[in-house]
Design a binder for these strands. Structure first.
Lengths: 188, 188
DNA sequence: GTCTATAGTGGGATAGAC
DNA sequence: GTCTATCCCACTATAGAC
């Protein structure tokens, strides 16, 4: 993945990420990217074959970072789902435009490093216990962050209660008991 | 809303919707739209001030239709939440690109008919009983449909179980309200 | 590795004739 | 209400010199 890029290409991808986050997806053009780097747009093509490759690199980096932070947040957590949600929200808050890029279109899976998507999802499956519950929980989490990102919850006051409601709904029984301060032993 | 548009403008918006759904957002250009109607692009500006107005009209129509179908589906339903989810999924399946247009960016609320957004959301609030539960359920539903739309659930086999898991989670007040009002590090 | 020059495409929008 | 002609913009990408 990113390791297959030259050092100069890595610099370009880093600049692209800055540009993306600071000015949005529409501003991510080869001209503007060249500007940021103090070179002309055509020079970029000596380091990256085309713009699609640049976007793939951004997406791949995003998944790798997400997977790492999710793993780190949940590995030793007493409440893995809550910890994951915190890490997830933090990632989106740090990288809102990148998150959009990662999720708004079908993934170019064949051009991404193998397993990068699966690794990012693994922490969630671990946290909720089963793939179908993970899918449902993922939908809730993704829905919450994109709706917030898109200003679909005008009154931010209602946000935290909604997160609590969803967390409680998707926590497995043992987790609910843990949150209540009960023993897990009796959980089915 | 749409009623403030001339009949010809209404025809244009209808053609735009066809174009949007059949070829995607990138194909929705004034030139291509003119093609569909058998006229030149500049002629469109006699009926609509600019492209943004066209998109606003599309979004407004989408919300009106959604509100109507959601109302119709839930008004006499024994299981309002399940009925709403069915209607919601059907709307997205019929209008995937329009749904994207309606949800992927911050809403130009000041340019939409008043209450149109609220009306579309009202059925869900009725179905789940409280605004915060509605928000959480909305996030789940929206997350599910966009992730499906974006091919994020590669194996479609897992889709229906995920819907069932989510529905069950949000239909069970006990699980949702378990932590209601309680501050959690995982949520707050 | 960067440059200039440029091709090629496509977009939104306006002016003014008919 | 539609046309032609046109402007101005921006983009990706290539060729070839340095």
């Amino acid at each position: 993945m990113g390791e297959s890029l030259s050092p100069r290409a890595r610099q370009i991808v880093a600049a692209a990420r800055d540009l993306l986050e600071s000015e949005g997806a529409d501003a991510l053009t080869m001209r503007r990217l060249g500007e940021r780097l103090g070179i002309r747009a055509p020079s970029l093509y000596k380091h990256l074959p085309n713009k699609a490759a640049l976007e793939v690199a951004l997406i791949a980096d995003g998944f790798e970072e997400a997977a790492e932070t999710f793993d780190a947040a949940t590995s030793a957590a007493k409440e893995p789902l809550a910890a994951l949600v915190n890490a997830y929200r933090a990632f989106v808050k740090r990288n809102p435009q990148l998150y959009r890029l990662m999720t708004e279109r079908p993934l170019p899976r064949e051009r991404l490093p193998a397993e990068v998507e699966h690794r990012a999802a693994a922490a969630l499956v671990r946290a909720v216990g089963s793939p179908e519950r993970a899918r449902a929980a993922f939908a809730f989490i993704h829905g919450m962050v994109v709706l917030e990102l898109n200003g679909r919850f005008p009154d931010d006051d209602g946000l935290e209660p909604a997160w609590r409601a969803g967390l409680a709904a998707f926590a497995n029984p043992a987790s609910i008991d843990a949150l209540r301060g009960r023993s897990r032993d009796g959980a089915a």
